[in-house]
Design a protein around this nucleic acid. Structure first.
Lengths: 97, 97, 97, 97
DNA sequence: CCCTGAGGCTTCGTAC
DNA sequence: GTACGAAGCCTCAGGG
């Protein structure tokens, strides 16, 4: 980087560093704003889903499931089942009824 | 219509608007992907800042402070003051005061 | 109740109402304090569980499952499965592996 | 020992401390039960307050205010003032001022 | 690996 | 009683 500015312990023209800092902050803030918009959009989609009679919680669960590493999911399931079995809560055939 | 069940132009099964559900999931997943991209971009900006000698932790602190402050005071002076306030970072700038 | 105090629109000796109010507030605040203690205790149990190597999330899931109305649980499961099937995410035999 | 698997005085299965797990669940469930009782008690107090002519919503407001105030100022005067402040409730008391 | 902070879930109280 | 809103707790992603 040709503009190696503001390194600790080196004297520099502060103005340049400040401009650069302004740029950094600007870009981050813009990105965060955009991000907030996306989050709002997601919310809206779920709200619309709810309005159309969908069970939002279930839809969220689906999205989460799909985004999950299948291996991790399997592992979590295994632990859960192990605990259930340990407690005599048989993960029985009824599950698929 | 191969499936003789309540399908009037839209893909329905057991009273469920399948296409609508798929659309919801699609949109959410696309939005989340976009969001992940934004988050990566923010990371990149900070990485670049670090490459230019900025104290990333301090810059994050500034961004956070500014995000809390209702009126963000866009002027460089304010940023500069905040910058100096936030920590004792980047002593090279202080040197030029 | 013999002490029917402080009824709107009736003149009364305010002192009695105040004493009664003090009592009410005291009791509520004591109960809330106790409640906070219980909540803390629950947290502690989970923390201890974690310390002993248990998967806290799974344990919480078990507790929740056991506290749930089986009927409601079944219903939630059904919705979830319906959505999965609609999306081609077969709740297959693999589930029990 | 009927189960020949790693059972040295405690009930273990597949490396899982079954007894410990049961203990955890038990304790949590007991605590939650107790907690539910407390919540019911609080309800009862408010119900009684209502029966005695108090404006329950206002009393709740007082309790909330006091819970936010770090130093709760136990004196009757403070309570009384807060009470008067909180709303224009229970005009009968104002009558005696 | 821990801590912090943002977001989602749940419960309780309120209004209609 | 149903639906909305607020509050507290849990969760999980992210940084140090």
């Amino acid at each position: 980087m040709t503009k190696g500015v503001a390194k600790k312990g080196h004297n520099r023209a502060g103005g340049l560093a400040v401009d650069q800092l302004k740029s950094i902050i600007d870009r981050v803030e813009n990105l965060e704003e955009t991000k907030a918009g996306i989050v709002a959009d997601i919310r809206d989609v779920y709200a619309e889903a709810k309005g159309n009679g969908f069970d939002v919680k279930a839809v969220r669960a689906i999205v989460k499931l799909r985004s999950m590493d299948p291996e991790k999911a399997e592992e979590a399931e295994t632990i859960f089942d192990t605990y259930r079995m340990a407690l005599g809560m048989i993960p029985s055939i009824d599950d698929t009824i």
